[in-house]
């Protein structure tokens, strides 16, 4: 499975929350879901890990 985008990760987190809010959630799968949520959170955090602003000059191919 390829790494989800930030938006996909957030959407999956939301889906996990919705599943956990249903009353019929299976305790056997609880740990599995929480682990997946933790993975997604780490992924989101890493995408926002502090870094310097990069500037790429787009020159030479400017449309007239």
């Amino acid at each position: 499975m390829s790494e989800p985008t930030y938006a996909e990760a957030v959407a999956e987190l939301e889906a996990i929350l919705v599943r956990l809010e249903r009353d019929d959630v299976d305790v056997d799968h609880l740990a599995e879901q929480v682990q997946r949520a933790a993975v997604l959170l780490r992924l989101c955090r890493s995408k926002l890990a502090a870094a310097k602003v990069e500037i790429e000059a787009v020159l030479g191919d400017v449309d007239d």
Partner: peptide
């Protein structure tokens, strides 16, 4: 905008772990 987006997974994670704890 980015900060708001950044808080969203944190908020969801808090909700997920709280919910899981409640379920347990």
């Amino acid at each position: 905008l980015v900060r708001a987006a950044q808080q969203e997974p944190e908020r969801l994670w808090t909700a997920v772990s709280a919910r899981a704890a409640q379920r347990l």
